[in-house]
């Protein structure tokens, strides 16, 4: 039996026989899926990193210069006993400067200053990271004696998340537009293929072929275009991550060790393929419904000449 498998491979041969016209469509699909995929993967990496920062969000309490180490330690204990607080660390000004020296090469500048410019700091890890809870805790800490100021990094985080969600919704609009465009491109490609085979299709109708039999190879053609485009998109994505991942990783490692760039993994790979196949077959159906209407089995007689 001329099974579906046989027809599927013969549709593939069709592409291989005329690689140029297919290549344009396949690379268009590849690029249009590949570009947003790169952004999605980069965004995910960035967001997962933000999450980690979020988990380590702290409130820094800077103490008055006049506060002694012993007083600072006592204050730390008091704060630790509050139910809203999960962890407290007291960092004396000497410890602070040692840490600073370890991380930077600015130690000489500090030494030339002659005296330690850093205050004692109490790091507070809140129980809840909810922005309102944190804000209440910060203002209550500010009011304590000996506290110069208290601050948190959550404000800029919130703003960053806001920017991200705007970028996300703009991207969705772009991606949807892209994909509709792709479906139209595939529909056009299939339409051209149908037109090129008008004689063959006409003959097949005369030999008693059903519409679905005639449709099938074109749907397979759309499937292969989509799959090829999906593969192409995966290649573009992974290749572009070679230089990118190295850069991002070394950058990340200068802040914090143990960060590795996530290339999307097999889930992303198959998702991209699936999107390609979806777009390809949808385009094929659209192209067929547009063109097949013009090929009417009744009116298509054998030509008069």
């Amino acid at each position: 039996m001329f099974s579906h498998g046989r027809e599927l491979t013969s549709a593939l041969h069709e592409i291989i026989r005329k690689p140029l016209s297919s290549f344009v469509t396949i690379s268009l699909i590849g690029i249009s899926i590949g570009l947003p995929s790169i952004f999605v993967i980069l965004g995910e990496n960035f967001l997962s990193r933000l999450d980690r920062i979020d988990q380590s969000a702290k409130i820094n309490i800077f103490l008055d210069e006049s506060v002694l180490v012993a007083e600072g330690l006592a204050l730390s204990k008091e704060i630790q006993s509050q139910p809203e607080v999960s962890m407290v660390r007291f960092i004396s000004s000497e410890e602070a400067i040692k840490e600073f020296q370890k991380q930077t090469d600015l130690s000489e500048i500090l030494f030339t200053l002659g005296q330690n410019p850093l205050p004692h700091v109490i790091e507070v890890v809140p129980v809840s990271f909810d922005s309102i809870d944190v804000a209440i805790l910060v203002s209550s800490l500010k009011d304590r004696d000996g506290v110069e100021s208290a601050a948190t990094n959550l404000k800029w985080l919130e703003r960053l998340y806001g920017v991200f969600s705007i970028i996300k919704s703009i991207s969705i609009v772009f991606v949807v537009t892209f994909f509709i465009g792709l479906i139209l491109v595939v529909a056009h490609t299939i339409g051209v293929a149908i037109q090129n085979k008008a004689d063959e299709i006409e003959l097949m109708f005369l030999l008693g072929a059903t519409k679905s039999f005639i449709r099938r190879p074109f749907i397979y053609l759309g499937f292969w275009h989509g799959l090829g485009g999906g593969l192409f998109a995966n290649i573009i994505t992974q290749v572009s991550f070679f230089p990118l991942a190295a850069g991002v990783e070394s950058l990340a490692q200068s802040y914090q060790s143990g960060f590795s760039f996530d290339r999307g993994g097999s889930e992303m790979f198959f998702l991209i393929l699936l999107i390609g196949v979806f777009l390809g077959t949808t385009g094929a159906f659209l192209g067929l419904s547009k063109k097949m209407g013009e090929i009417n089995p009744t009116r298509r007689g054998y030509s008069y000449k």
């Binding site: 003959l203 109708f205 030999l207 008693g208 089995p297 054998y302």
Partner: peptide, 30 residues
């Protein structure tokens, strides 16, 4: 319509062979 056409063989003046397919494939088409 296809059911009727499957029961009728037609020979055309210009024979209507598919030039991209070989003789075997052309004859195998029905």
């Amino acid at each position: 319509i296809y059911k009727v056409r499957r029961d009728i063989g037609v020979v055309y003046q210009n024979h209507r062979l598919l030039s991209a397919k070989n003789v075997f494939e052309n004859v195998a088409l029905p």
